[in-house]
Design a protein around this nucleic acid. Structure first.
Lengths: 329, 329
DNA sequence: TTGAAAGCGATACCAG
DNA sequence: CTGGTATCGCTTTCAA
């Protein structure tokens, strides 16, 4: 058995209260006593139990982060940004992936019971679940998801960059555009799609962009979209994809079919993952780590300062034009 | 304040012991009583406190995983594989990134105090620290790191695939080979380097492979290695890189300099990350998720079954030949 | 089948 | 400056 505060107290010949004071480095302990306690603690290799401490202090010194998946680079980077700041703040980090989990909301609720606060990425849990957590007093920060009630949120700019991206394509001569993604399952994607439509409305174009909905935003889905278009001999001037993985899958299949990109059809993605560079993919870069880091800071404010008025951060993004949408790059 | 077991007991008109029995779904509670308790719990929206429960049960129902960084795809995938299994086993997951943290070992020790067991990836902490954790009774599983004492381990096969890779290159006519990586900081890389040398020894080649040590296994370092070689006008027949990111950085710089790959120089990586496909990079695929998943299962055995004899798993890898090392692909 | 009470390992108040 | 003790929220004997 690991030694407890009582063992140390006995060893040092003091009360547990004194040991507690020494371990917490609180004032008001005579140096001689302190040294005796420290010696005893070292002797027994004593480390205070987190459980006991947390129960007494009624805090966990741990936060949780909920995300759909870690397989793409996007969420991994956000989590990493979050973890970095959380560590600085001396908080442990609990993670929970909801992907393919039927009891996601239970798991989140369970996690809430182990943390002082939670960061929720994307549409991992329902609005109702978020509301109910908030109602129970759980400190929350949403990332990549529009604000709900008075819950804090951190988002990357989507609408304006989607418009810039679309305007770039229009200026490259694109007339027919097909957007690939699922606006329903991802709030980010919904905003991007809205931005694309907006750009069309503001242009002189008499055509409207099309929407192709896919289940997953991965390479496989992208490849499937390309296959379908090739089979139907129905290629638009440009595919605008909800993220880079879709675009990469699509690009790969087009290349295999010998389709000229960007000559025959242009392709764009979103996120600027590493592979995008190697594929020459036009995309929109978002500050993934910053999203996580900002969320960690907001959460800390909620927990420590008891801040009550909600904050909503919007981080800037950047259009990155490469050869998949431009002959001059 | 959240309701406690006492609130529910009062509301239902029973003792806290009975509430505890109902909440843990243990036998020996009359149906009528159970229903009254459940009603009271629902009424108050009661959820048992993990802290209280864990303190009483002396267990955390949580495990930790320690990794250097999550920025490359490799560790992210391992963590994800781990998380998936841990979730099935109804265990929470704590994460800790040691990269750029001076107090890494303290942080790991701290984390050990919050978990029933720990998975340690790569060379994140010293052998001494691992030994001392093990000595204190912390359940441990090492991943991507050679066994230490009687601590469990999970590794991907490195030596044999490094030999196959090297033999492939030799058969492609490579005579001078330069290995890029840091065998000291990564056990995996050390084994790969050893495999390369072995293949040379067993061949008729009269030349020995060279070693270029880099600080980080990232694209930037790879680019720097390419720059140095170009500046010195000293290109080997092949660069064998310790991971894909190094190789991608190298490839990019070679392409920019107009060097013919694989004609003038061949390049290989390791891991088979997504970008490797798009770059046509020859590499060795390892089962990243499986590494994490296997570690989770071993750890569970240690915790639940109190297994004492150590286990060491070796997962298979696969050589993936692409255009960066072969004209026929 | 149920309840009373003793832990689990800390913190923190109140005396002395 | 130090010690005694109630308390945090739960589990788990031991009796009733």
């Amino acid at each position: 058995m690991l030694p407890t505060i009582r063992d140390v107290a006995k060893e040092a010949g003091v009360s547990i209260a004194t040991v507690s004071r020494v371990m917490r480095e609180s004032e008001g302990v005579r140096d001689a006593t302190r040294l005796r306690v420290l010696a005893a603690a070292a002797e027994l290799e004593y480390t205070p139990s987190h459980l006991g401490r947390q129960l007494a202090e009624r805090r966990h010194a741990a936060n949780g982060i909920v995300f759909p998946d870690l397989s793409g680079p996007y969420y991994a980077e956000v989590v990493l940004g979050y973890e970095g700041v959380a560590a600085e703040l001396r908080r442990s980090v609990l993670i929970l992936s909801t992907h393919g989990r039927s009891d996601a909301e239970d798991a989140v609720r369970e996690m809430a019971g182990r943390c002082d606060g939670l960061v929720i990425l994307g549409r991992t849990v329902s609005d109702a679940a978020v509301q109910s957590l908030a109602a129970r007093g759980t400190k929350l920060v949403l990332v990549a998801r529009p604000p709900i009630g008075t819950v804090d949120s951190v988002n990357a700019e989507n609408h304006a960059s989607a418009r810039s991206l679309t305007e770039h394509l229009l200026s490259e001569g694109v007339r027919s555009l097909r957007f690939v993604g699922d606006p329903v399952s991802s709030p980010d994607v919904a905003e991007r799609w809205a931005g694309v439509r907006d750009a069309f409305l503001r242009s002189e174009s008499d055509r409207a962009p099309e929407l192709v909905t896919v289940d997953e935003l991965d390479e496989e889905s992208g490849a499937a979209v390309a296959d379908a278009a090739l089979a139907a001999d129905d290629l638009p001037d440009a595919f605008v994809c909800g993220n880079d993985e879709l675009a990469l899958g699509l690009l790969g299949r087009l290349a295999a079919a010998g389709v000229d990109v960007p000559g025959t059809v242009m392709v764009t993605g979103w996120d600027d993952v590493m592979a995008a560079r190697y594929a020459g993919l036009t995309t929109v870069r978002q500050p993934m780590r910053e999203l996580g880091a900002t969320a960690a800071r907001l959460l800390e404010e909620l927990i420590v300062d008891e801040r009550t008025e909600p904050r909503h951060e919007l981080l800037p993004t950047e259009l990155v034009i490469r050869s998949s949408s431009s002959t001059s790059h």
